[in-house]
Design a binder for these strands. Sequence first.
DNA 1: TTCAATTAAATTGCGTACAATCTAATTGAA
DNA 2: TTCAATTAGATTGTACGCAATTTAATTGAA
Lengths: 145, 145
Amino acid sequence: MDKYESLKLDNQLCFPLYAAGKEVVRKYHALLDELGLTYTQYITLMVLWETDGVSVKDLGGRLLLDSGTLTPLLKSLEKKGFVTRRRGDADERMVFVYLTEEGLALRDRAVGIPPRIAECVNLTREEAKTLYSLLNKLISGLTGE
Amino acid sequence: MDKYESLKLDNQLCFPLYAAGKEVVRKYHALLDELGLTYTQYITLMVLWETDGVSVKDLGGRLLLDSGTLTPLLKSLEKKGFVTRRRGDADERMVFVYLTEEGLALRDRAVGIPPRIAECVNLTREEAKTLYSLLNKLISGLTGE
DNA sequence: TTCAATTAAATTGCGTACAATCTAATTGAA
DNA sequence: TTCAATTAGATTGTACGCAATTTAATTGAA
C-alpha cells in the first residue's frame, strides 16, 4: 500500500479532464484559423448566433468566462468587424454585444467545422452521449453551490 | 429542421469538455495556493514524484505539453527551489529534471489535495470510472494517429 | 432622500498554451 | 567521413484565463 497512491497521474480523474479540454481546443485552432477565429471567439459567436444582443455578463454566465477574459476578446472581435458593443440605455453599467452582417455571415462558413471535429472523436454515439451528460453533471457540481 | 443545429452550444460535446477542464483547474488553484504551486506545476511534480530525473521531452509526452510551456515552468519551479535541471552527459541536447529535498518534501503536503478535490466531484465511483475511461479513449483519438 | 452596499465592466498582473522559429547536438545515408 | 536531415530544448509572439483591483452606475435600507 502506497501512501502516495492518490498522487499518481494515472489515478487522477482531473488530469484527463484537463488534457482532453486542452487537446480539443487545439484541434479546433487549426480549423478555425481559416475563419480567422480562436476557439474562445468561436464559442462566443456561437452564443450570439443563437441569441443576438447578449450582455457581457450573460455571455460570461453561458461560457463560464469573466470580464477579464471577455472584454479583450470582444474588442478583438469588434476590430475584426464581427461584432459591435453598445452600452445599455436603461442600465449604463451593462454592455451588449451585437453581430454585424459579417459576423452573421460567418455562420455559414462555421457550419463546416463541427462535422470535421466529429471525425476526430473516436467515440460511438452512445459513448459521446454518456460523456456529455457526465461532464455536465460534473460542471454543475464544480460551479453550482 | 435548423441547418445551424450543430452550431448550438448545447449540442456540442466539446464545450463541456473545454469548460470542465477549465473549472477543474480553477478548483485546484485555490488549494494549491497554499503550496505555492499552479496546477501545471503540480502535475509536473506528480510525474517527478513517481519518476525522478525525467527529461523535458518525456515530461512533455506525459503531460501533453511542449517545451514552450515547460521551459519557463521548470525555471519557475527551479527558482522556488523544488527542482534542479541538468544537461544530459551522453546527449547534450537533453535536459533532465530532478527533485530537490524541498520538492520531495512537498509531496507530504500534496497528499491532502486529492481528497479535497474529490469532495467537489459529485459523481458516483461508477460514473467517475466511466468518465475516466471515456476521456482517455477520446484523448488517444485526438492525439494518437 | 441619501449614502453605503452592490453590481457590471474594465484594467492589471501573472502563468499558462502553443505555433513558429532558432540554436546546438546528433544521426545516418551516400 | 561528411553534411543534410533530424532532434531537444529555448525563444518569441499571441491569446487566453482568472484573481484582484478599479471605476462608474444602480439599488435599497435607514
